[in-house]
Write a protein that binds this DNA or RNA. Structure first.
Lengths: 323, 323
DNA sequence: GTGAAAGCGCTAACAC
DNA sequence: GTGTTAGCGCTTTCAC
């Protein structure tokens, strides 16, 4: 279990190739300045492969003064296919530059992000949400050289989603909009942003502000919200996400009503069960994979000291029968 | 961006406390042998706190010959609340022993697990599924000192889930059982295990083997499966998970039929939308948080060279109206 | 083109 | 009790 399994060191490779460790280092990191003859290069590469040599990460980062680890902080919310693809894309892009991505699940009781950052000696830390200034400072003190939010959940993008939802409803003639706010507290900040977008769209269309009601993921709660919306003549509701939207749909059925006739509802995320809802749920979809790709570029830019391109975002309405 | 922000070193702390680096090291790692006077101890601790000193992880693990990083490999499947809690629990337990947990999302294109293991210089690697012998070897070569599967998705546990589902149906008088197999290929191995359990329960009850049909997450596919089951006089189906079960439910509605009268269905996971389905879905729930806690103990045992306690598992039926 | 040598920040014998 | 010292495995400057 704790057997000290002798690691193969660059010394071993050097010996096997009949050169010095310096030369091995040069070849393996292909340093441009030192023109090493192809013959020697191959000999070293071969030896390394034969011995299954892996540079010791700690030693390497200690000496080089920079690690090759990038840490992504994920919020404590369900990780669906979208985020998975985002992570995948990011990991792949970073791998192309020799960087390795690891994840941290931001949770109440776990280790703090700066702690984790220090523990893995991360060179860059990416957040799915923006970090506040204190966190950024703490991360830098913990050794992170570049810190940046993923921007995915940043205001403009998040607001755009709400805006899109509301506009979809308004375009279909709804004049009184409801908003189904999530009960889960980790979701609040994101929800606030989206709600801003909905409110903005209503304002621009000359409508009253949305009737916002917190909706948990239980039928009774959802049914109560539906009753309220009906009482206040809301005809269409934007839900924070698909789960909340599905709860609203369940609330509608509970009253013996139907969507979209009695109340239209639109979600966000296009989770797999959205299309299986009764009725199939109209929702906003956005390609997190694409976002991941762009984020990776931004990180690479930041790491190279180049200017970071602002991130963009193209959410899309998937129209089904709930609206 | 790449500003070299001088790190505070143990030297700085030593200086501030007026002692040598050795003493600092002893105090901070509270080495038992060297009885250091409380007064000095406090002075050093204070200095460290004041300077916000964090030992450089790479240097530390290089010198100590062991890192404090534990890597958890997560399968490329949606990470729901269950797995999140498992991770939380694990991270918390490990943190109590000074260990830091980071995650790797096993995906097709990302970096391989041994690569990640080497990159973060992980001391232990935990898998959500069992690793094959080759992987274990590769991980050890990559520097992992203890490698162990999380056992969560191991055969006995997974089979138990299927068994439980089938038994629930059989107890309610169903004599012909169907199995809704997931279309997603990453889910196959786990699904095979669960199906084994269902088949076992049928066998024991003297029933014919379950009618297994692959069911994707679209209404047409699910409706087709439902038609088949009806044609083959299946009256109850065990679905691989709740999403698949919800698809089956949608398929049932598509035919103008109802659950459980025309076809009963039972899922696994108790996802939030399970209770919002039409009708609310009966499902198997298991407390991954509890599993995480036990796994953490096992890891600590393994790391301390103690015998690893076998993991156990207590899935539970959440009965709602779909059965 | 290749190698010798000096660290990176820390730990842990071993001396005092 | 505390400090001195020798590395851990690697990178990198500078000399050959």
């Amino acid at each position: 279990m704790t057997d000290p399994v002798k690691r193969t060191t660059s010394q071993d490779v050097a010996q096997a190739a009949g050169v010095s460790r310096t030369t091995v280092s040069f070849v393996l990191n292909n340093r441009p300045n030192h023109a090493i003859p192809e013959e020697t290069r191959q000999r070293i590469l071969d030896a390394a492969r034969r011995l299954d040599y892996r540079p010791h990460a700690s030693a390497r980062s200690l000496a080089a003064g920079r690690s090759a680890v990038v840490l992504l902080s994920l919020p404590d919310v369900p990780i669906g296919a979208g985020i998975s693809r985002f992570v995948e894309e990011l990991a792949t892009a970073l791998a192309r530059d020799g960087l390795t991505l690891v994840l941290h699940l931001a949770g109440a009781h776990g280790r703090s992000l700066p702690d984790v950052c220090a523990a893995v000696d991360a060179w860059a830390v990416i957040g799915f949400e923006s970090f506040d200034a204190d966190t950024v400072q703490a991360l830098k003190r913990a050794g992170a050289r570049v810190v940046l939010p993923a921007h995915v959940h940043e205001s403009p993008a998040m607001q755009l989603i709400g805006r899109l939802q509301a506009r979809h409803l308004i375009d279909r003639g709804h004049r009184r909009i409801g908003y189904a706010f999530p009960a889960h507290r980790n979701l609040r900040p994101m929800a606030e942003e989206r709600l801003q977008g909905v409110a903005g769209a209503c304002r621009e269309a000359g409508l009253e502000p949305p009737v916002v009601l917190t909706t948990d993921l239980e039928i009774p709660g959802a049914a109560a919200a539906v009753a309220q919306w009906k009482a206040r003549s809301v005809t269409g509701v934007c839900a924070f996400n698909d789960e909340t939207a599905i709860a609203v749909l369940a609330g509608i059925r509970e009253h013996g009503l139907t969507a979209p006739g009695d109340l239209a509802v639109i979600g966000v995320d296009d989770i797999p069960t959205a299309r299986l809802a009764a009725p199939p749920l109209t929702t906003v979809y956005f390609d997190l994979q694409e976002v991941g790709r762009r984020r990776a570029d931004a990180i690479l830019d930041a790491m190279a000291g180049r200017a970071v391109a602002p991130s963009t975002f193209d959410p899309l309405i998937v129209e089904r029968s709930s609206t």
